[in-house]
Every structure is written in structure tokens, then in C-alpha cells.
Design a protein around this nucleic acid. Structure first.
Lengths: 135, 135
DNA sequence: TTATTTCCGAGTATTCCACTTGGATTTTAA
DNA sequence: TTAAAATCCAAGTGGAATACTCGGAAATAA
């Protein structure tokens, strides 16, 4: 059970933006070099982050990205969900119409997966970028 | 971030064994039919579960599998770890020699991944098969 | 006007998942 | 003794997802 690179790279990239918050835009190239990521891959992640409203972009030379809100106001949960989709260990809960769990009502593991998802959410939704840098 | 079918099927299969604990061996065919899984795929999972010491097998006609211990003494954590490997969201912690996280000491996200892993472990290591059936 | 940057859509190599296949062996029951 | 039922074992496979790359177009600062 592992997070994909999207989530991991994404959080680290956002940390980089948080570090330079208030100092103008940071380019993908700079972030990619610092963290040793592929910059064309980073582009994709930032496109997603932008659509999610977590960053703003400035095009052209000297352009780049800045956080859309204060680092204390952006949680890890928002970043991860934007890049990886919702936190659900099994798709037995909400109605995707999948036949995976027809017997969802009587399923004994359903509560288990929900408890785990909730506990993950509880952590990531209560940790901001500021928290990661801070204490 | 989703659990693979190994973990999900595995826990459900073990629940099936727990339900019939004390009534002699249960065959893969029976479990697969009940849960609507592929039985040849189930075979693989049970092979792993057996190597992990969670089930015992009885070969030949009228054979099958039984839990190696009491349902109250087998945790969901043991099952999931046997089938899915260790719970680690990123491989920055223990020394696999991977170059992924050379700067592990100063990595700000390291504590985050660890906190999440710990909270997952806390749930799955404290929930037994008995718990799943019971209350 | 040229460098630099984001933007966008598509393509691709590799890995992983979720199985399947084809047997060999063990045991029970007729 | 033989047939059926079951585990055991190793390998193969198709499809999907991951982790990228590539080729431009558009915007902006110097």
C-alpha cells in the first residue's frame, strides 16, 4: 500500500512553494532541479494542482507558480486528494455502481476500510504546509 | 490510494474460515464460490497465507484450510501484511538502499508518512477476525 | 525579438495487477 | 484399486496504471 509519486512529489513541490511564499513565482525548472524530479512530469502535476485551485500560475519569462493561499491554509489532504483522488481503500462505500460490493450492507469488512480511511483523512486534513515546515 | 484485491479478498476469505472455525477444513472452491472470487487466484493467496503461518492446510479430498490460531488471535494486520507487504506509504524510512530518499534526514514529509503508517497499523493490528464478526 | 516560461495533447516504456494454465502430488471414498 | 477431490507449484498473460517523454503553441519579461 503505497502512495504514488504524484502524491509524494506533489507535496514536496508544494513545500518548495511554501518556503518561497511571498517572494514571487517559482518556476517548475527550479523545483525540479532542487528535488531532482523530471520537469516535464512536474508540469503535469502543477496543471492538476492549478485546476484544483491550490496554486496560481504566471506565464512567460520570470514566470512560475505561487501558492493560491497562505501555507497555513493549505492542507496536505487537499494536495493528495487533488493528485491521487479520494482516499478510499475499497470502493464499497459510495455508489460507483461497481459490482464489487453488491452485498455492501452485510459486509463485515466495510467498517474496517472506513475506519482506516477516516484515520488517514484525519491526519492529512489537519496538517498544513506550514505545519510541515514549522515545528 | 487503494488496497489491492489481495488484501481485500484475503481478509474476506479469512473471515470465511473464521465463521467455520472448529468445523474442519474449508476448501478454496467453497470460499471462492461464496465470495465470488476466482479459485485459482485464491489458491495463490492461500499459499501466501500458509507460508505466513496464518492458516494450515489439509490435502486431498475433503481437505481444505483452517485457521492456524483462534479467530480472536489473528489480526487483520497480519493478513494484510502477509499479502500486501509492509505498510509504508513511501520508502524513505527503512534502509532498502533505494536512492529515492537520499536526503531522508532533512525531509519534511518523512514524519507525515510515518504518522499515517502508524495510524493505519494501529487500527489493523488491533482488530482481530473475531472483532470483524462480533459486535 | 528572443529567452523563458506555462500550457496542452499525445505518445510510450515499464511495471504491477489480477488473473489463467498446466500440471504434480496427496488423500478420501467407492 | 481407482476415481474424484483437493492442495501444491511454477510459469505465463492480458490489460491497466504508473511514470514518465515529446512536440509544439501561447504568453510575457528583458
Amino acid at each position: 500500500m503505497k502512495l504514488s509519486t504524484k502524491g509524494r512529489y506533489g507535496v514536496l513541490a508544494m513545500v518548495e512553494l511554501a518556503l518561497q511564499y511571498g517572494d514571487g513565482p517559482v518556476s517548475i525548472k527550479e523545483i525540479a532541479e532542487k528535488q531532482n524530479f523530471s520537469d516535464s512530469y512536474m508540469e503535469q502535476l502543477f496543471s492538476t494542482l492549478k485546476n484544483a485551485g491550490l496554486v496560481k500560475s504566471l506565464r512567460g519569462a520570470r514566470g512560475g507558480y505561487i501558492l493560491a493561499r497562505d501555507p497555513s491554509d493549505i492542507t496536505v489532504g487537499e494536495i493528495i486528494r487533488a493528485l491521487e483522488g479520494p482516499i478510499e481503500l475499497a470502493e464499497c462505500i459510495d455508489g460507483g455502481g461497481k459490482l464489487t460490493c453488491v452485498k455492501s450492507p452485510e459486509c463485515v469488512t466495510r467498517g474496517l476500510w472506513k475506519d482506516i480511511s477516516d484515520s488517514i483523512s484525519n491526519i492529512i486534513d489537519n496538517r498544513s504546509l506550514q505545519d510541515l515546515l514549522g515545528k
